[in-house]
Simulated scan of single mutants.
Amino acid sequence: MDFDFTEDQQSLRDAVQRWVEKAYTFERRTSIVNAGGFDRAAYSELAELGLTALTVSEEHGGMGFGSVDAMIVMEELGRGIVLEPLAQTLVATNVLSAFAAPAVQAQWLPRIASGEALVVLAQQEAASRYRVDVCQAQAKAQGGSHVVSGRKSIVAAGDQADAWLVSAQLDGAIALFLVEKDAAGTRAEGYITQDGSRAAEVQFSDSPATLITTEGVAALELAMDTGIAATGAYAVGAMEKTLAVTAEYMNQRKQFGVEIASFQALRHRVADMKMQLELGRSMSYFASLKMGEAPADRRRALSQAKVQIGRSMRFVGQEAVQLHGGIGVTDEYIVSHYFKSLTQLEMTFGDTLYHLGQVSDRMEDTAGVFG
């Protein structure tokens, strides 16, 4: 199998890398965190690079690229731990493209592609615990359309979004709806998360909604898998930068008159970090390549990937802090922010323990043999 990237893909990587290095510096990121954790101007810059249009079809003004191209982009954004939620844009794009009616696609996909509209997933509830088949929000038909009532938690950039993809019970089954931010009965309470990004609790009270699909569970499974692939690639970029910063520090920090990078025990720990990074990278590739598979195979593969990437994130982040010592947990030093980002990512779209359970369930179905 050929894992080399094409010239176009390498050019895409270079363009995003230049933007992160020059336009999204640590100082700018810090100012965005201090201002609330989301910057519409930075999101617009991603749109100007064409990243919000990445997986939107050409028919709707997008670039028509695939999951591998999205992986490349997310890796580079991860190196700069960019706060603006491009992963949510990829989720919305995939779900709308796969499940929405042509009229809804024509209304929203061009706006998402241009960066005019930010659409995010509002699925998680207090009782759902990562499960997509658990939903207490309710929807009902009203006046030829639908209304939604319920509360969604930890919605990425939820108070900054222009619309939400909302799961709700309709006639005894989970369906997926699109609710615009200006719809009656909506209220979003935003807050800063541990890694400096923004999220919200979103309340709906008989809020007018557009039905996307009555196959809500299937749509949510695609959303979760898209999110895992995107954030997994982002984590690889973050881990790579974390390792580089740690190695640089060890080559500068002296103890007993010599650089601590010369201590064999510490060199072994860095080698272990590198091994975990490469394990995570290989599973990120695996996840992206499996996005086009049948749903059952895709779901199994993405859970397998999330288990390894989650373990890698935890190991690399914790080792980086240990090797830095006390400075590794100070807000003034960059590695602490990578540690917080990796820690939060490990719990995004299902934590490692949850996906280990998913892998275990699927091993029972196949007697432990994967095709």
Rank of each mutant, 00 (worst) to 15 (best):
S67T: 08
V73S: 00
K306F: 13
Q318E: 00
D14W: 03
Y354L: 07
F339P: 06
I334L: 09
R362F: 14
S44F: 10
D206I: 13
Q194H: 15
M347G: 14
R267T: 00
A47M: 01
F26L: 11
L178V: 02
A294E: 10
T366F: 02
G115L: 14
A294L: 11
A218D: 12
V147W: 06
F3T: 10
T25M: 07
A161Q: 00
T214V: 15
A199Y: 03
Q160A: 06
T93V: 03
K274D: 13
Q322E: 08
G150N: 07
L243K: 00
T186D: 13
S282A: 05
T93D: 08
I32Y: 05
A113E: 06
Y249M: 11
L353S: 05
A183I: 06
S303L: 05
A230V: 08
V147H: 15
M71L: 05
V16Q: 01
Q124N: 04
E346N: 05
E319N: 09
S284M: 00
A98D: 12
I327T: 13
Q276V: 00
T186S: 10
A367M: 07
G227S: 05
D4F: 07
E75R: 05
Q160K: 01
V73L: 01
V68W: 14
S284I: 00
V82Y: 03
L323A: 15
H337K: 14
Q194F: 11
Q160V: 01
L77S: 02
M283R: 12
E58I: 09
V91F: 07
L176D: 15
D331C: 02
R28I: 14
Q9W: 08
E240L: 06
A87M: 09
I309H: 05
K274R: 13
I112K: 09
D14V: 11
V20L: 00
A265T: 08
Q358L: 07
E201G: 15
M74W: 01
G150L: 03
S128E: 09
A100Y: 15
R28K: 12
A168Y: 10
L211E: 11
F349M: 14
F339L: 07
G78Q: 08
T30S: 15
T343F: 04
H337D: 02
G371R: 08
Q9S: 08
A87R: 10
Q138S: 12
Y43D: 15
S282H: 14
R29Y: 03
Q136S: 10
C135M: 12
A141S: 11
E59F: 04
A122R: 03
Q264E: 01
N94I: 10
G66L: 03
L118A: 05
Y234G: 00
F263I: 05
T89N: 04
A70N: 00
L356T: 12
A53M: 01
L323M: 02
Q276M: 06
L170A: 08
T193Q: 13
R129S: 14
S97A: 10
K140Q: 13
Q322S: 09
Q138H: 11
S97E: 14
F349N: 04
